[in-house]
Nucleic acid binder design. Structure first.
Lengths: 219, 219
DNA sequence: TTTTGTGAAACGCTTCACAGCG
DNA sequence: CGCTGTGAAGCGTTTCACAAAA
């Protein structure tokens, strides 16, 4: 009930994983689950699960556990998965095209509504109904279609410039596929997908003979 | 000089970022850099940079900073970037093909040496000199070509099965592109690239009106 | 002076452990 | 009993702050 519950970062990062697991449980018709059981499925302790979930209210019943559907719906709301998210993609290269081909997401209300590119040769090409537009159309399109998410799939050297244009256009969330640290102003969120970084970290782990993942919470 | 310096996980995750920055500085002909300056470039404090770097020896000079080339070479060695890494890709779908087209990595000694797929229609197709092979060839190929890294770019439902086959074949590092938690035995490293998770976390951040990234260290 | 390397303090997250509820 | 919610303890990481080196 606090106005700003201040969710710890690690908790925020785990939320999507809870949500995925809950989705599966709902689909499987499971009615309740204990923090212990949820923890086992995700490689966490029961205490961790309980702490995380209490940030969103008293959701469980002592002696019983959590109502699967109730928890699912709460997380769906908290994560903003109960709305439609329209995204504008910039960059129609390999990664961009792979995203356009993918498109259908799990509980899917993420939509890549438009594609932009600065390369004239890419412009005009249709990708599943979305025709590649020139960059100078970005701003008006974002405004007209209430786009909130921008996906950056351009060469690293152009990334910051594209991000600046997106923010200028009114986008407040950026999904970054380039291996670059991007500066954003207050009020703009960033999430990065960097497979070269993942590969480099993997090589490091293999060099050291480590087990498991650098991201994982201790198993 | 300790036999096992026990590098903190957060430090390990930052190493590749230092390395990238150093690479750029080397290419730019820069001779020295201070921890403060390195920190600014990566969104870290100077103290953080110094703490991280001391895990690999006394590398800096008071009053001067760090010798760019020396630090670069040390990190290159620590990260295992002074060797060639051969990787086997399983899955010739959208993501797999994007990887095959990408291929050239920064200081590039990562090579996707072979591609495998279980779909007969994909087999035999050439991707930049690498012909897609059937899954039953994986084991012998890995053994013959000293492959240490396996890249999983198959549908989520097939992921664990593919991972098991890779480990069976002797692969010790797995780069996972599926949105699944994969179980691996001791001695096997995993690194995941999950853009649906990144997108979900982004939506959450936007919902909350947060600034910055969940991954970032505080700026 | 500038800047490193580093103990010590501060911080944040996880785990513990248990009161209380069903 | 089983299980949640939670204050408090424990632990790992970051930040501070300064002696020492260039």
């Amino acid at each position: 009930m606090d106005p700003k519950p201040k969710i710890p970062r690690p908790t925020a990062k785990r939320l999507s994983r809870y949500f995925r697991e809950l989705k599966q449980l709902v689909d499987a018709g499971r009615s309740t689950i204990s923090s212990k059981q949820l923890g086992v499925a995700l490689g966490l302790t029961g205490a961790q699960v309980r702490k995380d979930l209490t940030y969103f209210g008293q959701l469980g019943s002592p002696g019983v556990g959590y109502d699967v559907e109730r928890l699912y719906l709460r997380l769906r709301q908290v994560l903003g998965r109960d709305r439609v998210w329209n995204a504008a993609l910039v960059g129609a290269g390999n990664i961009g095209r792979a995203l356009l081909a993918y498109d259908h997401f799990t509980v899917g209300e993420f939509h890549i509504t438009a594609v932009f590119d600065s390369d004239e040769r890419a412009i005009g090409v249709d990708h599943g109904g979305r025709v590649v537009q020139p960059m100078n159309r970005l701003s008006s399109f974002v405004a007209e279609h209430e786009i909130r998410i921008g996906i950056v799939a351009v060469p690293a050297s152009a990334a910051q410039e594209v991000v600046d244009a997106m923010i200028e256009a009114g986008i407040t969330g950026i999904l970054n596929f380039t291996p670059r640290h991007l500066d954003v102003q207050d009020g703009v969120s960033i999430s990065s997908v960097d497979f070269t970084l993942a590969l480099e970290q993997l090589a490091f782990q293999v060099s050291l003979g480590l087990t498991g993942s650098l991201d994982d919470d201790p198993s």
